[in-house]
Design a protein around this nucleic acid. Structure first.
Lengths: 212, 212
DNA sequence: GAGGCAATCAAATATGGGTTCAATTATAGA
DNA sequence: TCTATAATTGAACCCATATTTGATTGCCTC
């Protein structure tokens, strides 16, 4: 009943992935600290050694997922392909991310509302914690907006370059992201199509929607 | 502290809409019976006069939302327009539903997982209730599949008729529904575009994606 | 206007879940 | 080898929440 041997100990990372997994299955409110802990063979109490509380844990999951996705997108954006190529690669990358790690993908999508309501710190009356959380949450949403802008900018650039037809880039971008996010809901490993194949269909669909 | 005068009494319907509202704001698990009750000036206890328990209440909300949407879609499907016209109308109808009643729309989307996990009856050990719930839930999911099929069939019919290019109808349909569902997440009354206008963009986008 | 049903509530119950705490042990470094 | 630190735990705490119960009162019908 104490520290585990080094070869079976878990770190922050492990907990994050486990949490993503459980979060995907149950949703934030329905996910208990015990559930998450069980996934890594810990007790609920142990989680508090790694995270301040449940809200921070959730937020960390979302941050990690978002960062991973953004990193891939940035690499594509800074390449020198045509806008159409770029957009295609971005779509593929996003969809593959979602299918490859449904947990994080779905968490990203569905737990954001929980994040908005998050208020454990407030309930506790610990205003320092509450402030820190508010700040991090704000940063997260800013980053999510940035994520969205990577797609939107590419769409707009493509229109400017005459590669795409004229559309309401903001709405079309959100339609696109909605379609991708939704994949995390219905996609099942071992189904008719692989993640790559779903991604192919998406790329084809959106490029068709935008073709001049 | 008893029955309210007839002119201010609430019925099942009122509670359902109120619940949809709160559910949209907070999500299933974070929504308390008290929250819902407050929305209609009742106490939590009173809700149990109208619904067996929280799970049944949620399920009822989803059923109502789905039924409304399906009714509109069926009317369109049974008309004698071209497939393209039909699909356009279906998209418009769906998107307008979502923007016009974000509560139900979002509940539809986001609370389905809660529905999957729903287990109050089970927790209670009341197996009669559990069975009844399981049956209704099953029916709900069947109906949701039917809802999806209304779109998919139209896409397929359009392909067969040569109105649409050849695509993976199943995936494209889900992409479409994902895009629409997502509208419930970001749409805000009083934003740059009205619900109708958003619907227009969606129609345009999907018909473009499918045009030969 | 009496009886019965419908709708409501306050209060009590039970339980689950987040969180804290003090104690315990592995590990790394001196 | 000794010590400080990191990781982990069981148990306790506290509170919010779903649900039950029994009583109360408006309303409709005969």
């Amino acid at each position: 009943m104490a520290r585990k041997p080094a070869d079976q100990s878990v770190d922050r990372e492990d907990i994050l992935w486990a949490a993503a997994e459980v979060l995907h299955r149950n949703g934030y409110e329905a996910t208990t600290m015990k559930d998450i802990a069980a996934q890594v063979n810990l007790t609920a109490a142990s989680l508090y050694h790694h995270f301040k509380n449940k809200d921070f844990l959730l937020l960390s999951v979302l941050e990690v997922g978002l960062d991973l996705t953004i990193a891939k997108l940035e690499a594509i954006e800074s390449s020198d392909m045509t806008c159409a190529r770029k957009l295609g690669e971005m779509i593929r990358s996003h969809v593959v991310s979602v299918t490859g790690n449904v947990a994080v993908g779905a968490a990203m999508v569905f737990e954001i509302r929980a994040l908005l309501n998050a208020s454990v710190a407030v309930r506790n009356g610990d205003s320092a914690l509450a402030d820190e959380f508010a700040a991090r949450r704000k940063r997260f949403f800013a980053r999510r907006d940035y994520f969205e802008s990577l797609f939107r900018n590419t769409v707009e650039a493509g229109m400017a370059a005459g590669e795409f037809r004229q559309v309401d880039a903001a709405i079309v971008t959100r339609a696109m992201l909605g379609a991708h996010n939704w994949v995390g809901v219905w996609f099942r490993e071992g189904g008719r199509l692989s993640g790559e194949e779903v991604a192919d269909v998406m790329v084809d669909t959106w490029l068709a929607a935008l073709r001049v």
